[in-house]
């Protein structure tokens, strides 16, 4: 099956971003296809460059970068939402800005669209 994931919470705000990233790994491991991960609302903070969490904590943003690089994925950050919050640049590796139009396409291609975050 083909999936699109929407992430709406900031990293460390809740478990949503962690769960979304783990879910992405799991569905790929099971042989499904990930069409896109779309970051919206406070989810755009997942794309900030230069985050430095304490060494004994997980690095949510690096986990996304790893997912993207290992699987040649699209991590799409809504440009309007990112610009509104001042995080449009620089973005961490693996993320890129695009419009809601990219989500529209992904929804069209997908069998499942799953939202993470409140």
């Amino acid at each position: 099956m083909k999936y699109t994931l929407i992430v709406k919470d900031a990293p460390y705000q809740s478990q949503a971003a962690d769960t979304a990233c783990r879910f992405a790994h799991a569905l790929i491991a099971e042989g499904h296809e990930l069409a896109q991960v779309f970051f919206y609302f406070e989810g755009v903070f997942n794309a900030v460059a230069n985050a430095e969490p304490p060494q004994d904590d997980r690095h949510v943003i690096n986990n996304w970068t790893k997912l993207a690089l290992e699987n040649e994925l699209e991590l799409v950050v809504c440009s309007t939402a990112a610009q509104r919050r001042g995080v449009a640049k620089p973005l961490a590796t693996g993320f890129r800005l695009d419009t809601l139009g990219r989500l529209v396409e992904a929804v069209s291609l997908s069998d499942r669209v799953i939202t993470f975050g409140s």
């Binding site: 919206y40 419009t99 989500l103």
Partner: peptide, 11 residues
Amino acid sequence: DMAYALAAFEH
């Protein structure tokens, strides 16, 4: 914004 974007493209 998201709902209207989807509606604008035939969804």
